[in-house]
Amino acid sequence: MKHVFIIGSKGIPAKYGGFETFVEYLTKMKVSANISYHVSCMTEDNKEFYHNGVRCFNIKVPVIGSAKAILYDILSIKECIRYIKEKGIQNAIVYVLACRIGPFFSIYKNQLKELGAHILVNPDGHEWKRSKWNYFIRKYWRTSERLMVKHADLLVCDSKGIEAYIQEDYAIYNPKTTFIAYGATVKESELLESSSTELLDWYEKYGVKYNEYYLIVGRFVPENNYELMIKEFMLSNSKKDLVIISNVEHNSFYKELLSSTNFNNDPRIKFVGTVYDQEMLKKIREQAYGYIHGHEVGGTNPSLLEALASTNLNLLLEVVFNKEVGSDGAVYFNKDKGNLANLINEVDFYENEKIKKLSTKAKQRIINKYSWEKVVNDYETLFLNLNKEREK
C-alpha cells in the first residue's frame, strides 16, 4: 500500500479554490486500490473523518494574520511525521501544495528522509510576483520557493511554463521536475436548465441577456489585468455587456479602478459579485458570447480551463501560460492600446461556424490534455512508480 499525505490545501470537501478542487477530484476519482490518501484540512478542531473514502485529518490553526497559512503547513507536516512514525509506514509520500514553508523545509525534509519518505512539492505559480504582497512578503515568498525547490525530491508542475521556469531559474540545484496538468470537465450543466427560474432571475437582476455578454471570472487582483480589460472593452464598439464575476469589495483596488477607468459611466460594464453555485456558474459560462482572460501570473489557471470547457469563444492574454493551455482553441490579445478593443470588434461579428470550430478545438484540448481522468491517472502512476523513479 502506498500512503500519500497531501498538505497545503484548505482541505476537502472542497469549498475554496484550485488546490481544494484538485484534491477533491484526486480522491473521489481514485482508481488504484494500492493508494491510501491522507488529506490535511484547516478547521477549528483536530479530529479525523473520512471523505471520498480517504482519511482526512483536521489541523487547528490560531488566527495570526497572513502567517496562518505558513503555520498551517508546518503543523500539517509535523502531524504527517507523527502519524508515519506511529503507524510504522514505509516509503510514504508527502505532497506539499505551494511553497510557503521554505525556511523551515530542510528540518522536516531530514526527518522525513530518516523515515524513508519521499517529499514532493507543487510550486504553484509565481506567488512572489503577486501585487497584493508588499516588498517583504514578496521577498519571503521568493526565498521560500527557492529553498523548497532546493530540498524537494520532486517538483510536480501543473504548467510546462512553470516547469521551464523552475529548471532555468534554479538550475544550480539541478531540480527534478515532472509535469502533470490541472483538470477540467467538458460536460454541459445538467442540474440547471436554461429556463430555470434561478438563472432567469439572475439575468433579470443584472440586466443580462443570453449570448449577449462577455464574461470575466477571477480573483479581483491587479495582476489579472482588470484595468486593461475594462478600458479596452470601453474602447470597443460592442453592443454586448461585460459581466465581471469576482470577489469585488469596494476596497482600494476597486476605487483605483473606478478612478482610472470611470467604468460607472459605461452601462455595459457590470460587476455582479460572486456566484458560489457551481452549476449556476457553469451555465453562465456556457451562455456567454465570449470569455476574456487576463491572468498573467502563475501556471495553469483553473478558471481558464473551465472557460475552455464551457464557453464557445475565448479571448486570452498572450502569455506563455495561456497559450500553452488554449493553443489553437482560442484567440489572443496583447497589452498594446487598442489591441483587445479591436479584437472584440472583430469577434463580435464572427460567423457561427467559426465560433463553433474554436469551441470544438478548445473542448477537444481539454478532453485530450486536461481531463480529470487523465490527471488522476497521471498522479496515480507517479505515486505508484516513485520508488522505481528514485532508484533510476
Rank of each mutant, 00 (worst) to 15 (best):
I216Y: 06
V54P: 02
E256L: 05
K68H: 04
I366S: 02
Y25D: 14
L281K: 13
N322H: 03
E353L: 02
D378E: 14
I284G: 10
F271W: 11
N352T: 12
G294M: 01
I64Y: 02
Y254I: 11
M148C: 09
S195K: 12
V23I: 11
F5H: 04
D266E: 11
Y350D: 01
S259L: 03
S32G: 07
S246A: 15
E391H: 10
L71T: 09
I244H: 12
Y170C: 05
F271L: 12
I81H: 01
E232I: 10
F233S: 08
P62F: 00
W141G: 01
S327N: 09
D328I: 13
F220N: 03
M229S: 08
I245W: 01
A181N: 13
K10A: 12
V272F: 07
I162V: 15
V39Q: 00
N345V: 08
P123C: 07
P13V: 06
L304F: 05
K150P: 12
F5M: 09
K209E: 14
Y165P: 05
F179P: 05
I245H: 04
E204C: 05
K392I: 15
V31K: 11
I269A: 13
A307M: 13
W372H: 10
L154S: 05
E286R: 11
K369I: 00
